[in-house]
Nucleic acid binder design. Structure first.
Length: 553
RNA sequence: UGUCCGAUGGUGUAACUGGCAACACGCCUGAUUUUGAUUCAGGAAAGUCCAGGUUCGAGCCCUGGUCGGACAACCA
């Protein structure tokens, strides 16, 4: 039995490259376009790229692929940097494709000089028509055979701003009959009189992705350039530019992007949800964005663990969100502070507990922590328990509170339900219970054994808090498979706001801590909280076998 | 009609590179438990897309199919 985990296909490539002495160190890059916020799919890529460099020795650059000024913005740059660091990774160099605009322009000239690029006056429709189809070869542009001198002059004039947007493009001169559509004289440069978030107005021509990405990799001497499957057909072009331009031979490798059940993972769709106000913003806790899951209370540790567990391969996949939730619970169970909060109160009056009396009980902050400390929990004659923890007529498997039944109050006493107080309409108003004085937690001499333990909050000490309970954003498991507008599958109940009653220890809650509301789930303080109003987000529920059992009937 | 990529339990990922399919999630059962949580023990679940072939032996190799996906933005 080997205790070493088997390598994924990319690790195998890196491993064998290193063993073959191909590189002394590996260099990877994470290349987001600053036109949206990072999501869980990016997390997979980040963990992969940074993880590879960390594991095999080397480093990772953060490079913004900012070649399209009309969609990009510094707001996104800042959020992306923040998200990568939050996830726990540090890049070696912060770079921008726009840093290479001058060099890239030079590469364009070089290709023209080699007779491998030309300026085309065709419209975008004409160019599209020239492309042909995957099964039919394309046709040459009428401008394909311009002289080098003319191309050089025209390209320079494009750069100088002599032409309006769309008037001309620079195209590679490869083969309009090529079996690979991407090799049919792809566009290298287009004219966009647009303000760039970094270069301002110095350029009015901008390189296309294909003409920028590989060359940027080469300039940075990236050894392994890792991207998603849809770029497979681009690889031939990627290699062509490097060969013709005689650059450092970076290599592109592709892996399957992450898909998760009950959510979408495309920037375009996420942007739509934000713009059309289906969610409160990029950091809405229901969003699969990193800012969203962060606000929801997911920890970077749990996301890294998740990325490790899902593996890396080339086959398309749909990961069960349940796995992410498992990773989150696993981590939160270890670190969160236990607190009691009642969401749907039912008043319990402990009739044999003296009126006006109160006492402080000790509650463990975290039973998973060997150096457990405790917090004070006030107890008194009137408390709240959950409505759902009481049943007037209970099935045999129900071992919570019912008339004549006994339960333990967590960190406190065993109580017995003596009677039910109802209003004229027969609605339950409160429960009258008695407590067993010698059953106090920590000094229980009663000898009584009960099956159920309930969380509770003292009525007079209860702190009203707002809780936001999240459910899956969409109703269907596989959005990729769903017909029509993806927004028609939104789950109308994905957010539920509930006013709840918390124990006073929560008054000191901070955003740095994570909390487990006993028997309810993991929660974190939301930044919307003020001194007078605490707001908690439910990160994830606890596993609930009883809910499953109850559903069986 | 083309080219490329892929195919292993419900979901993912493995399989010492040709040696009788493993791990995780989920599911089921039981134990422990002052959270029906956690933890622990056990179980069900694929014979590896199909058909041939090579071989003592094939999930891994070969041939031919089938199915799924990608590819025709002045997006990345």
């Amino acid at each position: 039995m080997s205790d070493e985990k088997s390598l994924n296909f990319l690790e195998e490539i890196v491993d064998s490259d290193l063993k073959a002495g191909k590189y002394k160190q590996i260099i990877t890059r994470f290349p987001p376009e600053p036109n949206g916020y990072l999501h869980m799919g990016h997390a997979k890529s980040i963990c992969l790229n940074f993880g590879l460099a960390l594991k095999y020795g080397g480093y990772t650059n953060l490079r913004f692929d900012d070649t399209n000024p009309v969609t990009e913005d510094t707001e996104y740059v800042e959020s992306i940097k923040n998200d990568v660091q939050w996830l726990g990774f540090q890049w070696k160099h912060e770079l921008y494709a726009s840093d290479y605009f001058a060099q890239l322009y030079g590469f364009g000239i070089k290709l023209i000089e080699k007779g491998l690029a030309y300026v085309d006056d065709s419209t975008s429709e004409e160019i599209a028509a020239q492309k042909g189809t995957p099964t039919q070869p394309g046709t040459d542009s009428p401008y394909r055979n311009r002289s080098k001198e003319e191309n050089l002059k025209l390209f320079q004039e494009m750069k100088e701003g002599k032409y309006p947007d769309g008037a001309k493009v620079l195209r590679a001169r490869i083969d309009m009959g090529h079996i690979n559509m991407h090799m049919r004289d792809p566009i290298l440069y287009r004219i966009k009189h647009a303000h760039h978030h970094r270069t301002g107005d110095t350029w009015c021509i901008y390189p296309m992705y294909d003409f920028a990405h590989g060359q940027s990799d080469a300039i940075e001497q990236i050894t392994h350039s890792i991207c998603t499957l849809e770029f497979i057909p681009h690889r031939e072009l990627y290699d062509w530019f490097i060969a013709k331009l005689e650059l450092y031979p970076s290599h592109q490798y592709e892996f399957a992007r992450l898909n998760m059940t009950y959510t979408v993972m495309s920037k375009r769709k996420l942007l739509q949800l934000v713009n059309e106000k289906y969610v409160a913003g990029w950091d809405d806790p229901r969003m699969p964005t990193l800012s969203g899951v962060r606000r929801r209370g997911y920890t970077p540790e749990s996301i890294r663990e998740f990325c490790d567990k899902i593996g890396v391969a080339k086959r398309e996949n749909l990961i069960d969100v349940g796995l992410l939730e498992f990773c989150v619970r696993e981590h939160l169970n270890k670190i969160s502070l236990r607190r009691m909060v009642v969401f749907d109160p039912l008043k319990v009056i402990i009739t044999n507990y003296p009126e006006g009396k109160g006492e402080m009980l000790a509650g463990e902050n975290n039973p998973e922590d060997p150096n457990a400390t405790t917090r004070d929990v006030p107890f008194s004659r009137e408390i709240y328990i959950e409505q759902e923890d009481f049943m007037e007529v209970a099935p045999k498997k129900f071992f919570r509170l019912a008339p004549g039944q006994m339960v333990r109050l967590k960190n406190a006493y065993i109580i017995r339900c003596e009677s039910v107080v109802k209003d004229s309409a027969g609605k339950i108003q409160a429960l009258h219970c008695t407590y067993i004085p010698e059953s106090r937690s920590g000094s229980d001499t009663s000898g009584i054994n009960v099956k159920g333990t309930l969380h509770w909050v003292s009525v007079q000490h209860a702190v009203p808090v707002e809780t936001r309970l999240y459910d899956r954003l969409f109703k269907v498991e596989d959005l990729g498979d769903a017909e029509g507008d993806f927004k028609s599958y939104l789950n109308p109940d994905s957010l539920q706001v509930v006013q709840a009653y918390a124990e006073p220890a929560l008054l000191e809650a901070t955003t740095a801590e994570r909390y487990q509301f006993l028997r309810k789930g993991y929660f974190c303080l939301d930044p919307d909280s003020t001194h007078t109003k605490l707001v908690f987000n439910r990160t994830v529920t606890l596993r609930d076998m009883w809910a499953k059992e109850a559903k069986k009937d």
